[in-house]
C-alpha cells in the first residue's frame, strides 16, 4: 500500500475513533438507568461488568463498538509502527508483521467479546 493511502487511512480512522468513541462514552454515560452515578460506576474497573453489560443489548451499539475496535486497532498499529521505526531508526519487516498479527488478534478477540456481550453468540 502506498504511504499516502496509509496516512489517509490513519486520518480517517482517527476521525472514526472520534465518532465511535463518542458513541461509546456517551452510551455509557447517559443510557444507563442510574444516570447520576454512571461515571462513578464506570470509572471503577471492578464494577465494570455490572455497569456496562445492561447497555450492550443492541445490534447498532454492537456495530458501533465493532467500528471503534477496527478503527482503533488500525490507528494504533499504524501509529506504533511509525513510533517503533523512528525509535530504532529503521523499518524492520518482522516488526511490522508482528504488528499486523497483533492487530488481527485484537480485532478477532475484541469481536468475540462484543458478540458475547451482546448475546449474539450463543
Amino acid at each position: 500500500m502506498r504511504e499516502r493511502n496509509l496516512m489517509l487511512l490513519h486520518y480517517i480512522t482517527g476521525l472514526g475513533i472520534l465518532l465511535f468513541g463518542a458513541i461509546h462514552v456517551w452510551t455509557l454515560f447517559f443510557t444507563y438507568p442510574l444516570q447520576e452515578t454512571i461515571w462513578e460506576t464506570t470509572l471503577r474497573f471492578d464494577s465494570l461488568p455490572y455497569a456496562v453489560l445492561p447497555v450492550y443489548r443492541n445490534i447498532l451499539f454492537a456495530a458501533s463498538l465493532f467500528g471503534l475496535l477496527l478503527c482503533t486497532t488500525i490507528h494504533a498499529m499504524n501509529g506504533i509502527r511509525a513510533v517503533i521505526a523512528e525509535l530504532i531508526g529503521a523499518r524492520i519487516r518482522w516488526v511490522e508483521a508482528v504488528l499486523v498479527a497483533v492487530g488481527v488478534f485484537l480485532v478477532v478477540y475484541g469481536t468475540r467479546t462484543i458478540l458475547i456481550a451482546n448475546n449474539l453468540l450463543v
Binding site: L48, T73, A76, G79, Y109, R112, T113
Partner: peptide, 22 residues
C-alpha cells in the same frame, strides 16, 4: 499520549475479554 493510549487500548480489549469470558 499515542503510545500510552494504544497500550491502554490493548489492555482494555484483553480486560473486557476476561470479564466476559473471552
Amino acid at each position: 499520549s499515542g503510545v500510552v493510549v494504544a497500550l491502554y487500548f490493548i489492555a482494555h480489549v484483553l480486560e473486557t475479554g476476561n470479564f466476559i469470558g473471552g
